[in-house]
């Protein structure tokens, strides 16, 4: 049995095309109110580059490659962790009139529900 993945030529183009289409359609539905979390969220998703960084570092065979590979993992991990942290923080803030805040970490006194006139 062989599980090595081999993607070449047109197969790669098919993957790229379908992924681009999916991204376009998925994002097209996001309301403007969520554009900032969306931008940081998609920013988080390309943090997957850290996986490529780990692959490159593990396969490094001299000091130069090790140094650059280390750099790749360092930056990729920063992209992923930072992107997740800010997106999660922002999304936790969105709430409707009927609900208490999911997170009240910042210590702002939030009076209960606004009374309806």
């Amino acid at each position: 049995m062989q599980f090595t993945i081999a993607i070449s030529g047109f197969v790669a183009l098919y993957i790229f095309m379908l992924a681009a289409f999916a991204g376009w359609v998925i994002i097209g539905h996001v309301p403007a109110i969520l554009h900032t979390p969306l931008m940081s969220g998609s920013n988080f998703v390309h943090g997957i580059v850290v996986v490529g960084g780990i692959f490159a570092l593990l396969n490094a065979s001299n000091v130069l490659e090790q140094a650059i590979g280390f750099f790749a993992v360092l930056l990729g991990a920063g992209n992923a962790a930072g992107g997740f942290a800010v997106t999660h923080r922002m999304l936790a803030m969105f709430q409707t009139s009927g609900h208490k805040p999911a997170h009240a970490k910042h210590g702002h006194a939030r009076a209960g529900h606004p009374k309806k006139g």
Binding site: A19, A20, I27, G52
Partner: peptide, 18 residues
């Protein structure tokens, strides 16, 4: 690595639309 290809291209297209 198809995961990188897909994630990267999804973000590429999404970023362009945005």
């Amino acid at each position: 690595n198809p995961a990188l290809m897909i994630a990267g291209m999804v973000v590429g297209a999404a970023g362009m639309l945005l």
